[in-house]
Design a binder for these strands. Structure first.
Lengths: 340, 340
DNA sequence: TTGAAAGCGCTAACAA
DNA sequence: TTGTTAGCGCTTTCAA
């Protein structure tokens, strides 16, 4: 009970009456020792309450059994859910997760990564494919396997776990157009260092173009992925003589904020302004009006990223996987406009 | 650029023309080396792109510069916000954060902690004061400093960073009573292994008692801290001949779920049922009706916990701090009942 | 203020 | 299958 000092493997070996090497093997490659030896070691471990010293193990084996994930922010339900599944899956595979965030400041990412490198990890999970050269350089230099998530990217296809933001945006914009809207505004996040935002803008523009519509520059706003960002978008876009009849938001969080702002401004959703979101977070069907949005495979991304990361680390064959898919979820916040 | 192998301190020392010891000191205790030496080492570090090997450092110094935090879940905005501030503050103080969660299963906490111990951390941040003996035993055995957060607890007062759930609940219940409600229901989380839930029930009960009211057992429901939990609470409690006129929820998330369920059930909030929350998450003022709730110092908890944790680790004097406070936020989801 | 050298606790190659 | 032993890269005495 009151161990004065933390027991080491040597203590375990001595108590079990085997050599240090056998004790080590009993713990890491149990199938390579005699059942008898294994049992003796296990008993000693239990008796002493022995727990491996990870630093020593990492130093000697050059493996940490930890993977790091660098997120734009932790304070967004889609990332929280995704981290959750990433964590759970890694845990089952025997890995721990070290999380970090750069608060949507792409230029900070390399610093965050450096700190992680120093601490030592076996692999890194990144969000998106757009990172500074420094980030990729560090990864290369330290020979760290990595997977990029959320977005797909043709060039690095083997290591992406995500879906096409372009297509998701295209589908949504088409849906809005099909509902008879012609004056359509777009609220996204900051496009710098974020290819997902850029793909979304491009997809939306393409869908409008296919309907001979134009995405007016003054109706495209880049706002933070927060409730407040959505509020700002409404204030930014609902000025001037000609007003949009629909606001497509890049995230449900923004959409919910936009709806709240409309209410405060005494505008009705969807009668005065239709609002759509993206992600289909749980909240989407709880707000009033219920949000029309696009469902993305949030938790699946975490699970798959974990598995792929471990395959990469352990040198298993990494099979090219199909991209994940999204689907429209039609609820009440998008109005059908008859005539014009 | 294309370093074949990661440079070590020895390489730095050689390039700088100093001994290994001096190079080490230049990095960790720069004030103990001559400015000249310091500069030479710094230059070499830069030139080689040297990054410390954390495992080796941890092994030799028996310090990891990492603190772990074990949460019930990561998928709850109050924890996300708190983690955020914890992380930021630790980072500024030169520490990294390792997060883990036990998914509201108190019995898993010790296992999670063991994995953390193995990885090696300098201290642990826990949520709440109610943990299994095994958890405290591990902490003691490994001499790990820890701080408990969110809740205050007289017995371990020196290491708590939190507020009184009892008082917060008392205030809220009193407010509800003052609004003329006599039939009051309570929706909390699971009380097992969660002293915060128990304190909340006790506080609510005490406030009712002070008004000669009773907290009926059939109107006290323990549900998960999720939207769905709030929905279930409404279904559980709104049966029978006599119905409550107010539902006090243990979290805003539950309250928002409850409001949505009322809507689906064609009950109006607050006309047919008043609903109150707790935490004052951002969403609270975005929903319709806007939520009456109690504001808790979410981000302050993270900041203070980080500072206290580092003081504990570095052996600084840990000054007894005052408990944090909460305050009622009155909005629209609580109705005033005239007469009865 | 510096250099030399002895570990930190473990893994893995090698020999038996 | 097991025991022996040489490191893994760093910190930290100790002596100079």
């Amino acid at each position: 009970m009151s161990t004065v000092t933390r027991p080491k493997l040597e203590d375990v070996a001595r108590l079990a009456g085997v050599s240090l090497g056998s004790a080590s093997r009993a713990l890491s490659v149990p199938e390579q020792v005699k059942p008898d030896t294994l049992q003796k070691v296990q008993r000693a471990v239990e008796q002493l309450g022995y727990v491996r010293n990870g630093a020593a193990q990492a130093l000697a084996s050059r493996r940490t059994r930890t993977v790091a994930a660098v997120y734009p922010t932790l304070d967004n339900p889609i990332f929280a859910v995704s981290i959750q599944s990433l964590q759970q899956t890694l845990w089952k595979l025997g890995y721990q997760l070290l999380v970090a965030s750069h608060e949507y400041k792409p230029e900070r990412e390399a610093d965050v990564l450096k700190a992680i490198l120093e601490r030592g990890v076996d692999g890194v999970v990144l969000v998106g494919t757009d990172h500074t050269d420094e980030v990729f350089e560090l990864l290369r230099q330290y020979r760290l396997p990595y997977v990029t998530t959320w977005s797909t990217d043709e060039r690095r296809a083997g290591y992406c776990v995500g879906f096409s933001y372009y297509e998701a945006a295209y589908e949504m914009a088409r849906l809005v157009v099909q509902h008879g809207h012609t004056r359509i505004a777009l609220c996204t996040g900051a496009s710098k260092g974020n290819e997902r935002v850029r793909a979304r803008i491009a997809g939306t523009r393409a869908a409008l173009k296919a309907a001979d519509l134009e995405l007016r520059p003054e109706w495209v706003t880049e706002k933070p992925f927060t409730f407040e960002g959505g509020r700002e978008a409404v204030r930014t876009v609902m000025v001037g003589k000609v007003l949009p009849t629909a606001l497509i938001c890049g995230s449900d969080i923004q959409a919910v904020g936009a709806i709240a702002e409309c209410r405060d401004l005494h505008m009705r959703v969807p009668e005065d302004l239709s609002v759509t979101g993206s992600d289909d977070i749980e909240l989407a069907e709880l707000v009033q009006p219920r949000l029309t949005t696009v469902r993305v495979p949030t938790s699946e991304i975490g699970t798959r990223a974990a598995k792929r990361m471990v395959s990469l680390i352990e040198g298993a064959d990494v099979l090219a996987e199909e991209d994940l898919t999204t689907c429209l979820v039609v609820r009440d916040s998008l109005r059908r406009i008859s005539g014009d």
